[in-house]
Amino acid sequence: MTYGTLALTLIFVFIPLVLTRVLNLGLEKDLLIATIRSVIQLLAVGYLLAFVFEAESPVFILLMITLMIVAATHNVQRKGTAIPGITAKVAVTFIFIEVLTQGILLGFGIIPATPQYIIPISGMVIGNSMVLAILFLNRFTAEVEARRGEVELFLSLGGTPKQAIHPRLMQAIKASMIPTLESQKTMGLVQLPGMMSGLIIGGADPIEAVQFQLLIIFLIMTNAAVTSAMLGFLSYPTLFNGRMQLVRKLET
């Protein structure tokens, strides 16, 4: 695609701009910011990836992954959560999931150890983990607040914090995993997944595109389970103090 052709795609920005003006939605500024940011961010990433792919240095691959983890952690933290010291726990979770998934993919030779494979898959893994982490933390703190009485009941009867929080933790893990599983059930029926579409547009064989997409789907299942469970088990102890008491109201 030439830059001239790309410029033509701005028509798709112009249409919602006109609509928001006509319907008085007041979203003009947001639309312009979103457009400008996506152009700048994606072009920058494109040039950066071109450089990293050409350099083929593990240092640059690591730097890219670190950058992704830092950005994802910052985003989760920015969304706000009442759990103290959550930043480090989120970062540890992202690092673990990245090491686990890349370890399996590279260890079994499922993908070649080149930046062209490692970086995009890492982006999908970390991006997916980020969304899951936000979903999980919101649900978990809401669960604990809404059913504080039940948590205190278990504690009052001589339960440990782990026993008291267990039903709430399981509920939050399950709830954060459901959207991933549900969306995967309908995959291919309603819409073609992004990565598969990209490969097909890029000229890849559709069967090969499907194979890669399946890899991503399976990967994301692990991602969903491990991210929520790990974050849950890392974060629940901070809801209690040394006297096994539930901390006062969680600010959300």
Binding site: G149, S156, T160
Partner: peptide
Amino acid sequence: DPVRLRRKVGIALQDAPMM
């Protein structure tokens, strides 16, 4: 020990929460 304390001094909470 908090667990021992809570078993020794039992409380029936207000509103009697049921699981």
